[in-house]
């Protein structure tokens, strides 16, 4: 997994609340057996018309935001399905950080498996960054995972909270499975005890 430490980039504003996983990557693109190549279909139904032409009003089609690497989003981003195709598509597009007031649980966890940092901020701070993002390509937002800060284009610094284990894995690009297999002995012991106490499981 790609490491995440610092990021400085253009932020695209998406103020709509409850942006769901069906919007992020519609189901027609779930019929893949690969993880890659989904960026072109990120937000497909909002981004293209039925003939496949770009809808100019959509934020990521605007010249200022085509190279965005950060999303500033409305409340409850990523609600709905467990499809990891959503973070796959976001990462494949080149977005490495999403900022909102809240995320759906499964989507939030899925981000960390794919080198994406989801940042939760209070409403007023998210709104300030949304305004910043609306200024366009000249307004670069900076994210520092180690310091747990987001800095707006005019130098305002916001602190965010993050689980220490998730931070550690993201900063070092660690493979969860490898880490867990180091604890195989603990799993073996538990499994044996569990099977004795509850043989029907």
């Amino acid at each position: 997994m790609e490491k995440f430490d610092k990021l400085s980039g253009i932020a695209a504003p998406m103020p709509l609340v409850n942006i769901d996983t069906d919007m992020i990557i519609p189901k027609v693109f779930l019929k893949t057996i690969k993880r890659s190549g989904l960026g072109v279909n990120l937000f497909d139904e909002m981004r293209y018309d039925r003939q496949g032409n770009e809808i100019p009003e959509f934020v990521l089609n605007q010249p200022a935001y085509r190279e965005a690497s950060i999303l500033v989003a409305g409340d409850n981003f990523g609600c709905g399905s467990s499809r990891e195709h959503a973070p796959w598509a976001i990462a494949d597009f080149g977005i490495r950080c999403v900022i909102s007031t809240s995320f759906a649980d499964i989507f939030y966890n899925n981000c960390f498996k794919n080198g994406i940092l989801p940042i939760v901020l209070p409403e007023a701070e998210r709104d300030a960054l949304m305004e910043d993002a609306e200024k366009g390509a000249n307004a670069r937002i900076e994210v520092d995972l180690e310091a747990q800060t987001v800095t707006s284009s005019d130098g305002e610094v916001y602190h965010f909270e993050i689980d220490s284990f998730k931070k550690h894995c993201l900063m070092n690009g660690l493979d969860d499975i490898g880490l867990t297999l180091e604890k195989a002995a603990a799993i073996d012991t538990f499994e044996e005890k569990h099977a004795t106490e509850r043989p029907w499981v």
């Binding site: 467990s82 990891e84 973070p87 966890n109 899925n110 498996k113 969860d176 499975i177 867990t180």
Partner: peptide, 9 residues
């Protein structure tokens, strides 16, 4: 529910 990386895990 879990994502695909967690399915693999």
């Amino acid at each position: 529910g879990i994502g695909t990386s967690e399915v693999e895990h």
